[in-house]
Design a binder for these strands. Structure first.
Lengths: 396, 396
DNA sequence: TAAGGTTAATTTGTTTATCAAACTAACTAA
DNA sequence: TTAGTTAGTTTGATAAACAAATTAACCTTA
């Protein structure tokens, strides 16, 4: 075992700190870095020159003088490489090609008809290949791939169960790494969404946040101290099946009164069913009616919002997060849910807790999961830049 | 700012790792340490000699040879110093004097009549002084003090609110540090209990656990990756006020259907009231009847157990912990609650999660909080052994 | 416009913690 | 007795951070 540290560890840590400082506060000079992180000027110079050599950082010329020699400003080289993020959704999959800063370079939505693992995998492979074609020139090419899956993913990247796809024990990692290298990350869709919003969206300034993915069911990603909380064997965050009404409606999990029977997109659609005569309404139908001021629909949305608040209050009382971000499909109805939701949350959470917690809707909209998934290989790559260069880099 | 590392940091980290290895696996030799943690033999020797010099470690002579020179076995010097832990309970306070391994050296229970902060503080001070008198000789004396409080404690050690004591904004830290030095730790009673069970009790082998303190209300301490999860401003874990029955009984917090209205000691006492004609029963009365096979009482306990299971299932689904430890008063009724509790938990938690989570009752019984509180200054002291030597050490 | 002051970045030499290798010490087994 | 094994220390090399000195490039102002 090797759990202790030596000088190389220190250097790696300091180099990472320097790189992250540049990423977050760019543009800035070597002298700035030294004063911000407290590292000696000489050491900063040395580490920066290594970062420049590996093309992760570049100089963009002199900045404003503050009375003496002009500083040489540094920039994170966002085009040093790219990453691909895939969100497997219920009817389609969304794939994005992003640069190292998470900016979307190219995007693709592919409808899914056949949910069998083999077919979906084929679609994923094809889509990834498509995104990798005609890449802008870059030193590292595509550094890795992240996939968000609507189901349980264990610590060995195995998809244990994905009810909405009808999957059990599917090994996406094995299948993809054979073609695309080792920097492949498979994670739960809500976990990926949480990371996406934390890095690029509503949670940028929060260390503790809960991302709620509300679609057919309710899933969540819990971020504690900046890192994802994973629980035993990676199965945390199944908040949709928390009991909020002991003798409530029957849930597909076999229980009664699960939160998602009362506050998910499915709950909304089920209850809206009686208001439509000719066909089962879609979320879009409902929103259209709401926009036109349909009283009954507005009341229904208010009721769902209130039920949302009940579960939120539980989460606030239990975990006292800085921020709750609501994402996925139901966030489209945010405007009609917000008021009732916040009101119930206010009533049902403890006063000291309520004051501290903010509730927001996803800033990345429908892309939270895909962007979060893409960030996984980027983070891994930047922590250890030698590890993972895909074929894209080798065949430019 | 100084967030980067240098050689001193490395040395401190490695020294801590060496010390913790000795604490956990003693007795063992320098060579053992080297092979366990991967540090070079020479480095281990150097660090160990410093630890011996500071009297935190001692040699206890040669061990069995395995074919060559006999190893010199090392032991953590559990009597290098002592710590005091105090648990402020509803009717009394429990104070313990422990050695550096958490062994109880002396113990004191003091009844509380007047709950005003001043009076309680006086009692605490008097009790601490009593425990510090006639200490066994030791190099460091009492290294610090930890206090567990039944209420919200913020990150600056301020007691924001303790409803059962009628406290608001009480500064225990200031008052105690004036007399006893700076290594004073104030924390929520359930947080301290969680740490106690983690270090010395049922949670020794678990990295993620939830400690439930079930007395008048239900509090919890959540340990994630070996560390306490604190939430924003240190207010996490108020699980007692999670809604499990939307239109259930009114709670003292103003809500309906909070878990603690259905599954706490108070819920049990309230509901048992109708079974006793002459007086309001105590938990002890109830347990006596249960022991004698009183059907109605047994049914009531079963019902409480089942309600316990509902909330447990929520926690399992949300946090998927390795272990849930139930402590404080209601754990005394563990034998009568267990079956119904586990059965409901089984029914209401998701199958993949249930398999992984164990539920246990506190191994330290009523002492979880006091021992956990005492561990706080010990941990702080061992992380930085120069910091905190109380007057006890100066006036031996 | 030359001198003095200021800020940026690099160079030089010192410190210090780890490590590998060689060594001493102390034992076992045949 | 001797060869082999394990424990622990000593010695010298290495590498990373640091302080101080130095070079570089600017600004201000008399």
């Amino acid at each position: 075992m090797k759990i202790t540290g030596d000088q190389q560890l220190i250097k790696k840590m300091n180099k990472t700190i320097v790189l992250n400082t540049i990423r977050q506060q760019q543009p800035l000079s070597r002298a700035d870095i030294s004063s911000v992180i407290g590292l000696n000027k000489a050491t900063v110079s040395s580490l920066v020159s290594e970062l420049i050599e590996s093309q992760l950082v570049s100089e963009i010329g002199p900045g404003e003088s503050s009375g003496g020699r002009k500083p040489t400003l540094l920039l994170f080289n966002r085009s040093a490489g790219f990453a691909i993020g895939v969100d497997i959704r219920v009817n389609d999959l969304l794939a994005v090609l992003v640069d190292m800063e998470g900016n979307v370079i190219r995007e693709k939505t592919v409808p899914l008809e056949d949910y069998s693992p083999g077919k979906v995998l084929d679609q994923i492979r094809k889509t990834i290949r498509g995104l990798m074609r005609r890449l802008p020139a870059s030193p590292y090419g595509v550094v890795g791939i992240g996939i968000g899956v609507p189901g349980l993913v264990d610590e060995k990247s195995q998809v244990i169960s994905a009810p909405n796809l009808g999957w059990d024990n599917v090994d996406l990692y094995e299948a993809l790494s054979a073609e695309f290298g080792s920097n492949i990350h498979i994670d739960n869709e809500a976990n990926a969404g949480a990371i996406g919003e934390k890095l690029y969206g509503a949670g940028r300034d929060s260390k503790d946040l809960i991302y709620l993915s509300i679609g057919i069911g309710i899933g969540s990603g819990i971020i504690v101290g900046g890192d994802l909380y994973r629980g035993t064997s990676n199965f945390s965050g199944e908040v949709g099946h928390m009991t909020v009404a002991e003798n409530g409606p029957l849930c597909r999990c076999g229980n009664r009164g699960c939160w998602e029977t009362l506050a998910s997109e499915k709950a909304l659609l089920d209850q809206a069913g009686t208001l439509w005569k000719d066909h089962a309404p879609s979320l879009e139908d409902i929103l259209k009616e709401a926009k036109q001021g349909n009283e009954k629909v507005l009341n229904l949305l208010e009721q769902i919002g209130s039920q949302l608040g009940v579960g939120l209050a539980n989460l606030v009382n239990i975990l006292n997060p800085e921020l709750i971000v609501i994402g996925n499909r139901l966030s489209l109805a945010g405007d009609y849910l917000r008021q009732a939701m916040l009101s119930t949350l206010g009533k049902r959470s403890l006063s000291y807790h309520r004051k501290q917690t903010h509730v927001d809707f996803a800033k990345l909209g429908i892309r939270s999961t895909a962007l979060g998934a893409a960030s996984l290989p980027i983070t891994a790559f930047l922590a250890d830049p030698d590890v993972s260069i895909t074929e894209a880099a080798l065949n430019p």
